[in-house]
Nucleic acid binder design. Structure first.
Lengths: 212, 212
DNA sequence: CGTACTTTTGAATCGCATCAAATCTGGTGG
DNA sequence: CCACCAGATTTGATGCGATTCAAAAGTACG
């Protein structure tokens, strides 16, 4: 779908981006399954995910699919700002509302507006901390420990919204989906976790931590 | 040791930092075992590792030690620039030469010199890519695969220098040191890997990839 | 109503963690 | 110089947990 201006920019973006840059951004709704970019493509746009879910993934040497990042709210591949090409691909796994920011004007704004550059650095710092948390999580040994760590760090108040099903979570945790299903069932049986399903087509499942 | 000005700043830093900021930086040599900062401490200095090795680690909920990052060359905890306190601790694991950069002047320079801010953003982007590579590595299932991935991504020309022994590498790979020793031995037996030890006290061991 | 996908359960297998112990290493102090 | 110690390295044995393969049931969507 072409750019639509009927929707305002998400608040987080409106506060971050300078007005001049906001003018050249395009908001669009993207269906599940679409690809934002492929590996080796030259970066021209930088994407921000307002709703939905986008997965950054990469084909490993053995042909296995590695999930580098699931983005539910935030920038996609912001590290490709100065890169000559993408190192991974971005796939929409849950219908999303995206903002596309042209890279050239973005770099221009960063170079001329110090306040914006500072905010951008703060955003990158936050992203760094998030990634370190993910590394910490992947270093945990058990499936249950990884899942609980995910809910604690990525969830809000001990509750994690699932936009795209448990299978996608399993990939992010670096475990087989069978192992994750079993672990969730066990934790539920032990009363440590509660899974709620959305009643409607808006299947916003949710994992909530109990007794802790 | 107090600041010494007998040594110039490392080239990478000299090119990155504005002259005014270089003037307030302190170079120092730090022994193995020293701690640069503890969790919950308020960040006042930002460290750059010129030589040696510094490990960013954190005590997990179970009391296990999680290695978030091994820094052999680059910044330590650069994400704490705007943070109110550290989330992890930094331990020197191999005698290191460090540059301490006061945070306040650093933030001042970032806010007033757009070119510097841009360079800083580029550095953060590089760090983000490195961390994504680490996540990718930790998602691999086998010890051997993780090790080979480490050598490929962190090494230079298929050869990785070890500043602090295999045990520290095991922690970074998220595996037990026994498993890593066995894996290295197996790979050596298969002719896929060669381990060289430094002849002198400068025990710069090295892992080199063969036949690939 | 059929197709594609997720979810679920089962069973067999394998790799790694763990515990244990021996050897080797560098560095320290007598 | 040597005894000694702390840590790294190495090898062995055992058990657990995850992967893998397989198959069935549930669910969304056209």
């Amino acid at each position: 779908m072409a750019a639509t201006f009927e929707h305002e920019l998400p608040l987080a973006l409106a506060q971050l981006l300078p007005p001049a840059l906001q003018g050249v951004c395009a908001t669009s709704r993207v269906q599940r399954g679409e690809r934002l970019f492929r590996p080796r493509a030259k970066p021209r746009l930088l994407f921000y995910v307002a709703h939905g879910e986008v997965v950054l993934q990469r084909l490993a040497s053995r042909g296995e699919l590695l999930v580098l990042q699931r983005v539910r709210q935030g920038f996609v591949a912001e590290a490709s700002l100065h890169a000559s090409h993408y190192h991974c691909e971005a796939l929409v796994t849950s219908a999303a509302e995206l903002v596309a920011i042209p890279i050239d004007p973005l770099k221009q704004a960063l170079a001329t507006q110090p306040g914006f550059a500072i905010s951008w650095i703060a955003m990158l710092n936050q992203e760094l901390r998030r990634l370190r948390a993910q590394c910490e999580r992947l270093a945990l040994k058990g499936v249950a420990e990884r899942l609980l760590h995910l809910i604690e760090t990525e969830g809000q108040g001990g509750s994690l919204a699932l936009e795209a099903g448990l299978k996608s979570v399993a990939a992010e945790l670096g475990v087989s989906h069978e192992a994750l299903y079993r672990s969730v069932a066990t934790l539920e049986r032990q009363g440590l976790l509660q899974r709620t399903r959305g009643p409607e087509r808006s299947s916003v499942a949710r994992l909530t931590l109990l007794h802790r």
